[in-house]
Design a protein around this nucleic acid. Structure first.
Lengths: 242, 242
DNA sequence: GCATATTTGTCCGTATGTATA
DNA sequence: CTATACATACGGACAAATATG
């Protein structure tokens, strides 16, 4: 019944929001609100809903064929993850990070990623996930596929944090890195921000392979500091020139 | 408040759950769902709703005089914080931590709290919050007020993590420590778990006052390891004997 | 500054499915 | 196995806040 009026919140692009129906392949039984949240999260992190855009209850619920009540439950979840911002009586918006947010995100990353390396035990580490992320990143760079490169880079850092073997830490990193993507969508110059770090990813991994966790940690700290500075500067500039 | 048709929806008696109405002290404009979440969170962490208890949509929405839709939004928030567990088609329950959860929580604490100390700059630290927490804990112990002592102890560790000066880290610790309270409510022998740590809190603080962050970090690591072991053992026993 | 349209906030009623006694 | 209770999800309603002309 819901009238899917074309051209809702977003001016252009693919109008296809759906593919909600049969997720029966997944073992995890979850309600519709959570499935809606998954779809929206994907759309946000992929840039389909750019930062600052308003997510109208009516159009989204229409496009996804769910009731407004259910949609609002999904909104709550994503607001809690800081991907959406809930302004009372005005609706939900894709968050626009402030520079302070960037700084805090990098502070968390420095804390968590370095701590994960420091907490490593004896030299034969399980680096399969780290290795995989690094090589997919390198291959994506060869293809000039900077979107994939960005994803691989993020996965590299998730893998590093994953060495702590802690589900809660994993979730923290997932959320924080998803937030970080919001900043990249404001700037959209992926190559500049990811290419220089490919070799450093490789170097860090090599250190770990050799069992030199302390060295890897030191390099990682410099890496994050450089990345933070470069990103924060470019981001601040981009924000003010709007 | 909107939609107040035909008077109060529930003229009937609400138990002692309420006090929803006047939150006017807070500057933060928030919707009912968030206020409901605050009330429920308090009730859970204070033990009014013990772990394992089911939170019926009907009775809670009746007691708080909010609609079931609004209540469900609040449930989503608390589920996301791992205080509630959402079992599909069965409702929401106050979470019962598994031993694995305890271990992971302590892993996160070790990671974050130690990293916060390690990241400290030059010796004159701002320890007002830490100091305050320690002394309130000591005074509570003198009064045999172990509930207050538990709270102060938690606040002590929040203050330690707060030295990292990172909002996201603060939130992480808030959530993780709120979760940890669930374990204490299963056992309810607060004295045994908090008294031995009062002096160690004091010692750690003293180290920090002297500017010896590395020493404090070492002590903290032992502290957490001891605490984790003692708690996990007692908790496992308590769980199996039920 | 005002009148109006749009959108959110909140509530109600209800049909359907699922788990449990 | 049937019955009951409850969560799930939808749609409609209206007040209040906000945006718009």
């Amino acid at each position: 019944m819901a009238g899917t009026t074309a051209g809702g919140t977003n001016g252009g692009g693919a109008p296809d929001l759906s593919e909600l129906a049969t997720h029966s392949a997944s073992l995890k039984r979850s309600g519709t609100a959570e499935r809606v949240a998954v779809v929206l999260r994907d759309r946000i992190t992929e840039g389909y809903f750019p930062p600052g855009s308003r997510l109208s209850e009516e159009s989204i619920s229409g496009a996804l064929a769910v009731s407004r009540n259910t949609l609002r439950e999904a909104f709550r979840l994503l607001s809690h993850e800081r991907l959406l911002e809930h302004r009372l009586n005005r609706g939900v918006f894709v968050r626009i990070l402030a520079v302070d947010d960037l700084i805090d995100i990098y502070r968390v990353r420095l804390l968590v990623e370095c701590a994960a390396l420091r907490a490593l035990g004896e030299p034969p580490f399980d680096l399969t996930a780290v290795e995989a992320a690094v090589s997919t990143g390198e291959q994506a760079a060869l293809r000039d596929d900077w979107a994939a490169c960005s994803t691989a880079n993020i996965r590299f850092h998730q893998a590093l944090a994953g060495l702590a073997d802690s589900p809660r830490t994993d979730e923290l990193m997932r959320n924080v890195l998803a937030e970080l993507r919001l900043a990249f969508h404001v700037m959209a110059d992926p190559r500049r921000f990811h290419e220089p770090y490919l070799t450093r990813n490789r170097e860090i991994t090599d250190r770990l392979t050799k069992g030199d966790a302390a060295g890897a940690e030191r390099m990682l700290a410099f890496y994050l500091e450089d990345s933070r500075r470069q990103l924060a500067e470019a981001y601040a500039q981009r924000l003010t020139e709007r």
